[in-house]
Every structure is written in C-alpha cells, then in structure tokens.
Design a protein around this nucleic acid. Structure first.
Lengths: 236, 236
DNA sequence: TTCTATTTCTCATATTGTGAGAAGTAAACC
DNA sequence: GGTTTACTTCTCACAATATGAGAAATAGAA
C-alpha cells in the first residue's frame, strides 16, 4: 500500500488506488488512515497522499553505499565470471577509496580496505566527478606518493587526467597503483546523476604491457546499468 | 522493526535488537526474514542488516518539497502569528520559484504559483546556493525584467547580491518584486547541507520605506530549525 | 435542497502474529 | 575431532489484527 502511494506520487485519490490495487475502497481508506497516523504519508487534499516526514526520516537513514554493496554482491559475481576479471565496487570516503565489493579472484585489496584515491581507476573516477571546489582542495592537499614508475603524482597532470576521465566516461589504471596490475573503472550514478560509487574490472598483466582494457568496457557498463536500475530505478 | 534497523544502521545483531526492542529473539528473526524477503533489508553478516534495494527505491520516490510543504503547513501558521507576517515556503523548479506554502495573511502570491526567481527573497536565496555552473547559466540566460525601480536586473549586480546572500545567510527583497512589499528569506537545508527550499517572512511597507526586515530573522531561523529537525532529523 | 462522491463505522469471518521452547545449524574453543 | 556456546529456524497453542460488505455519516457539487 505504502509503495503504491509513493510510486503514484500523490496523483491518484483513494478510489483510483482501490481500482489499481484491486482492494475495496473502505480498506484503502483504512490503510491510508493508519499510514497517516504513523507519519509515513501526508494528505495533500482531494483524497491524495504523498510521503510523510517519518518516511523522509527513514530515507535519511539509508546508507546508500551499503545498499549498493548488497546489490553488487548479488550481481557482480556473474559479471566477474563473464569478464574473466576481478570486479570491485568502491566509494570515496573523505579522500580515500573504500573497497566494498570484490569478486572474481584475488588482488591485494580487501573488502573494507581504504586506499589513496589518486592512483586507482576507481579513485580517479570518483575524484574526476567531485564538485570543482572539492577537487581543487584535494589536489592542493598533496603530496601524492609515487607507487610505481607509472603513478601520476603531479597535481596538474592529475587535473588533466580527471578532465580526460570525465570526457571518456571511464578511467584506466595501467600499473599506477601496482606493477603488473591494470584496471578500468566506470562511475555509478544515482537517480539525480550524482556519482555515488565506481565499478572496476582488474586483471594482472605482464609488467609494462598495456593490455586492452577497453575490451572490458561494454560488460562493465552493462553491469553498471543493471546496478543503477536495481538501486535507483533508472540508468544513465 | 524496520525503523529500528534503519536507525541502528547495521551496527547491532539480532540479539541486541531483541533487547532494545523488548521482543523475543525468535520474533526478531522472523521479522528480519520477512523484511529481507521483501527486499527492504539486506544482511551484512554477523546477524546485522541495513536498508535493502526496495527501501532505496521508496526513498527515491519521495517528493522532498511536498514533504517539506506538509510539515510547513503544520508548523508555519504559528510562526506567522508570532511574526505578524505572511510566511511562505518556496522551492526552485528550473529557473522559477514555486510557492508551496503561504500562511498568515494575503499577498498576491498563491500556493502553486510560479514566479521568476531573481526578484524575490526566496528566489535570491535559492539562486545564491546553486552550484557555480548552474548559477552562471542562469545569469547568462537573462533578460531580467525591471518590475520596480528597486529590481536588480544587471547580471553582475545579481552575482554580487548572491555572494552577499551566501555571506549573510539570508536574502532581502525591499520592493524588488512589488512596490510596497518587503521580504526576508532563509535557506532550508537537508541533512547533507544542500539547500532544498527557502522560507520567507513578508510584510507590506510604506512605498520606499526600508523597514527593519532583520528583526524577523531570529524567529524565521527558529522556524527553519524546527522544519529541518522535523524533516531531516538535524538542523544547521 | 438534492444528489453524488467520499469517508468512516460495524460486524461476522478470516488471516496473521506472538512467545515459549524445542530443534537445527554454525562458530568458537579445547 | 568433539564439545560447548551462540545463532537461527520451526512448531504450536493462543492472541491479535485484518478483511470485505454494506450501512451510516460527511462533504462537495449541481
């Protein structure tokens, strides 16, 4: 009942809801009264209702990254198998990446681990999509430690890299965080288009071998679409 | 039960929830199983749960301005009486202000009405807190019609006004939208600090008389605090 | 004022929920 | 590997709540 009213968005009155839910009008009224009393719905006149303050409070307590992780743990093993890669989901917490899902093989990263953001594909995706002010502050904060000969550490080079990431729609890490490791990552967006997480496909490569990372892109974007659809009901 | 788990944020396991809710452990397990099956909760190991994808979908369907309006209709009549003013709540929709609540007297605005944003206190608050790119686009879009001799219409003057609004934390409209009308407005922020609406106190004044608008500020900020607390569980 | 639509109430019946405690499963410890 | 502890699921007798139909009350439109 609550779901039907939230989905309806306050457009229908009680008699219409009765029709669409195939429930007697008296029962609809009884349910609406209970939900109103509970603060989960608010009347807006004409027998119509929208979410109430208590519903908003519930929404405010949702930990979106944890929900995404739960969905990822369900869906990503299949994609990892199809990609023949390790697939990971990460979020930006402060200036670090938190690795929340990791399936399809072994890497040095562990679920729950936090690593610096500037040197990983996931991190570069998340940093690239920060608001300008926050990104500028991150770049000013330095220093950025050179982990391999490929690590980008110079702030202006990182800024250029972020521009490229936004343009391309994905980031690559070719041995920036670790010799012999290549990753590609794409952003996960919420219903408003804000980037809330990133998804990556990683694989070991021969050191200093470029590897065709972009070959993983179609399946990775498919995975991203399925996750966004499942979490937010829409997809970029 | 669902509310308790969302509030808990996945910290407690079933036996702890049983203790805090004063319910047998078997009943807690039964409820958790039902909520999991419904997709409203997701297990995160150790008998702990967080919001599930269906809960996130509910959250995505909440019309925040409508919820705020519902709360405003309840709380604002009292503030309007104490202020001896008309109190209004508005949101920015595209480049227009939608007036959603209006209590405490008569003004030319009507609930549901949309007006240009640049020339009202509510509008200036909302425009002032737009992301830089969006604000720049708004100022470029012009033209801004001169409604009274006091209306700010020059884009650079508007930009300076927005800087002042952000610095002061409120906006004033002294006969910018209508001769003889003065308003002061403050931003309404969500739990993340994003400005989602604005609240104003308005009163008729003698034409070309400044009026001491700031006298209304303490009560208006109190109203804003109560609304934010009720809607988002926290206050700026 | 009348008519129509909406909302609330009553009642007989149906359905679901509860707590206790047993049983099954999992994890920790020796 | 076996034992102990903790967690999870199941069963059952009993309790509580929900339901749909239709009547009654209220509100709005003509």
């Amino acid at each position: 009942m609550l779901e039907a009213v939230l989905t309806d968005g306050g457009r229908s009155r009680a008699s219409s809801l009765a029709g669409s839910l195939n429930v007697p009008v008296a029962t609809i009224h009884r349910h609406l009264a209970t939900l109103r009393d509970a603060g989960l719905l608010t009347p807006v006149g004409g027998g119509r209702h929208v979410a109430g303050p208590r519903m908003l409070a519930f929404a405010g307590r949702i930990n979106v990254p944890e929900v995404l992780s739960g969905i990822g743990r369900q869906l990503l093993p299949d994609f990892a198998r199809r990609l023949g890669c390790v697939v990971q989901l990460g979020t930006l917490d402060g200036d670090m990446v938190t690795y929340r899902v990791k399936v399809g093989g072994d890497l040095f990263t562990k679920v729950g681990m936090q690593l610096e953001a500037y040197c990983s594909a996931i991190g570069k995706v998340l940093l690239a999509h920060l608001p300008d002010g926050e990104q500028a502050r991150y770049l000013e904060a330095g220093p950025f430690v050179q982990l391999t000969t490929h690590t980008i550490t110079e702030p202006r080079a990182l800024a250029r890299e972020f521009v490229a990431v936004r343009r391309l729609g994905y980031a690559c890490d070719r041995e920036e965080i670790s010799e012999g490791l290549a990753c590609i990552a794409v952003p996960l967006r919420d219903a408003k288009g804000a980037v809330v997480a990133a998804l990556s496909a990683s694989r070991a490569i021969e050191p200093s071998h470029s590897g065709d990372l972009e070959a993983a892109l179609p399946l990775l974007e498919e995975a991203r679409g399925v996750l966004e659809q499942r979490a937010f009901g829409c997809s970029t």
